[in-house]
């Protein structure tokens, strides 16, 4: 069997400037952070990001100047940080192009892409400004094939007069990057806990790169094939990255890092401090192993999941120091 294992820097190098990309996870969980840091280190530019509820994965990419346009529903770390500080600043300063949808809207768009359909109907958003207003202009859409020519469309059901439906356009991306608990060298993938929309996002991408906490044997994975997330052809590359989602949580492996998230949000509020954060944790270290060394083994150890819970039940999450 051909091995799909590659290195992190090699994987990130596959993504060209201007690429369309979706990242796995949800707000403060299971984002492919090691991959994100590597994208920043390689100074990617003009990325087009598609997501439902990203968190600091997008925020740090936006702050580092890697992103041109985003289509999203939400950008924050929830109770760890109720706004993505760099996202907020980028919008307020007019430094980013965006389009607002809802979570259900974005997930529906990924579902359409995964199913090979041009759109799917929903009953959401009517009456809202998510429906009524458009952030991208018709000219911006027409000028760029990476973005759907229309935000949405409305039809009446052909099967019932007066039944109005919202059609949302499919998403197709060049890349999707997921961080998962377990993968094989051959590209079989297992997610534990919630899937978020990882499986759907993967199926509407040309190239799927998976970073994994653990590389397991083919026999181990095939003993419980019902737990495999994607068909074998879906995954192109596998990268072994323990703690690869830090400072975010990976169910059954480690918890959120409240200290690191607090430091990030404090730094990201101020331009100079954000640059210092990037310098310390991204540009100033050659690779992810060195990043983990800066965070420190004692801290990482304190985050490890208690097998009975899948997280660290005694982790201090508030009033740090």
């Amino acid at each position: 069997m051909t091995s799909k294992l590659i290195g992190l820097a090699e994987a990130a190098a596959l993504v060209p400037d201007g690429a369309t990309l979706s990242l796995g996870g949800f707000t403060a969980q299971r984002h492919p952070m090691a991959f994100v840091y590597e994208l920043i280190r390689q100074k990617k530019r003009d990325l087009y990001l598609f997501g439902h509820s990203p968190g600091g994965d997008w925020d740090i990419l936006i702050g580092a100047g890697c992103v041109k346009r985003v289509e999203l529903a939400y950008e924050a770390d929830e109770a760890f940080g109720t706004i993505g500080p760099r996202w907020r600043r980028a919008v307020q300063a007019g430094r980013i192009e965006w389009e607002d949808y809802s979570n259900f809207g974005m997930v529906t768009r990924f579902q359409a892409g995964a199913m090979g359909l041009p759109f799917l109907p929903t009953r959401t958003a009517f009456g809202s400004d998510v429906f009524a207003k458009q952030a991208l202009t018709a000219e911006q859409r027409a000028a760029d094939p990476r973005t759907s020519p229309l935000k949405q469309a409305v039809i009446e059901s052909p099967f019932q007069a007066g039944d109005k439906l919202l059609l949302l356009p499919a998403i197709h991306t060049e890349f999707c990057v997921l961080h998962v608990q377990k993968a094989t060298e051959s590209g079989l993938v297992r997610v534990e806990g919630q899937t978020f929309a990882d499986n759907i996002q993967a199926l509407c991408a040309d190239t799927v790169i998976v970073t994994a906490e653990e590389i397991v044997s083919e026999d181990f994975m095939r003993q419980e094939p019902e737990r495999t997330l994607l068909p074998p052809f879906a995954v192109a590359h596998v990268v072994h990255v323990p703690f690869g989602s830090h400072p975010y949580a990976v169910y059954n492996y480690y918890d959120h890092d409240p200290r690191q998230l607090k430091d990030y949000h404090a730094a990201a509020m101020i331009d100079e401090d954000f640059q210092s954060y990037l310098e310390k944790y991204v540009y100033g270290v050659p690779d992810f192993e060195s990043y983990l060394a800066v965070v420190g083994a004692a801290r990482l150890d304190s985050l490890k999941a208690d097998p009975e819970y899948g997280y660290s039940p005694n982790l201090k999450r508030r009033r740090l120091d």
């Binding site: 529903a73 607002d100 259900f104």
Partner: peptide, 18 residues
């Protein structure tokens, strides 16, 4: 050109609708 940008809908619009 917002004076303050918030995270956005998340699932709130959908919950409010459905």
């Amino acid at each position: 050109h917002p004076s303050v940008r918030f995270p956005g809908s998340g699932g709130s619009c959908d919950i409010a609708c459905l």
